[in-house]
Amino acid sequence: MDCNRFRLMLSRELDGELDARGQDELQRHLGECPECRGYRLVLLETAACHRELPEAGPPPAILAAVMAEIEGRNRDAAAWWYRIAVPAAAVLIMLLGLGAGVSLNEAMLAENGNGVEEVLGLEQLDDYPPGSFGEILVAATEGGDDG
């Protein structure tokens, strides 16, 4: 008789993972196999021994040591970040300050008419060469004003 298959089924039964059909088959086999009946009793004993093993509480020092390790690690990481972040922030502030200074200067120039007219002498833009588009445009505008 091949008892190996039934030993696997006995193990499943012990774990509550044997289905109803398997249960029927196993019970039929146990009815005619004293060796498997004996084996089943020893299996039950091993399971009882395992369940009765003590559940020890871990020493509190483990939690303390782990927390100290990971919090120390986080502090190290924070310190590293601080060493990088402070100089980086200082540089950023300087760059922003420089950028703001340039923008402010441009804003002041814009307020004063950009200063472009003075530079290019645009108050003389009416002096267009004869026959040029500028002269025609000025003539048309002045004519319009008169009319």
Partner: peptide, 8 residues
């Protein structure tokens, strides 16, 4: 299943 059965 087989591993647990062999252990037992």
């Amino acid at each position: 299943e087989s591993m647990i059965s062999r252990a037992r």
